[in-house]
Simulated scan of single mutants.
Amino acid sequence: MAVDERVEKTQQTLLGRLHPLVVPLAVGAGALAAVTYVGNVDPHEGGHYPTCPSLLLTGFYCPGCGSLARHS
Rank of each mutant, 00 (worst) to 15 (best):
D4Q: 12
F60M: 06
C65A: 12
P24K: 04
G30Q: 08
E8Q: 13
P63M: 06
Y61E: 12
D42F: 11
E8D: 13
L32K: 00
A29M: 07
V7L: 12
P50W: 00
V41D: 03
G47R: 00
Y61T: 10
V3G: 00
V22N: 00
P24A: 07
L18R: 10
N40P: 00
N40R: 15
T58N: 02
T36V: 11
A31N: 01
L21P: 01
V41M: 09
L32Y: 00
P20I: 02
S67H: 13
P43G: 09
H44F: 08
L25W: 02
S54G: 04
A26C: 05
L18F: 06
H48M: 11
E5M: 11
H44L: 07
G66Q: 10
Q11K: 15
H19Q: 01
T51K: 14
G59E: 13
G47K: 10
V3H: 03
N40W: 10
D4V: 04
V38Y: 13
C62P: 02
T10K: 15
P24V: 14
G30K: 12
T36A: 15
L57E: 15
V3F: 02
C65V: 15
P53F: 04
V3A: 03
P24C: 10
T36P: 02
H48Y: 15
K9E: 12
A26M: 06
A26F: 03
L57R: 14
C52Y: 13
F60D: 13
G30Y: 05
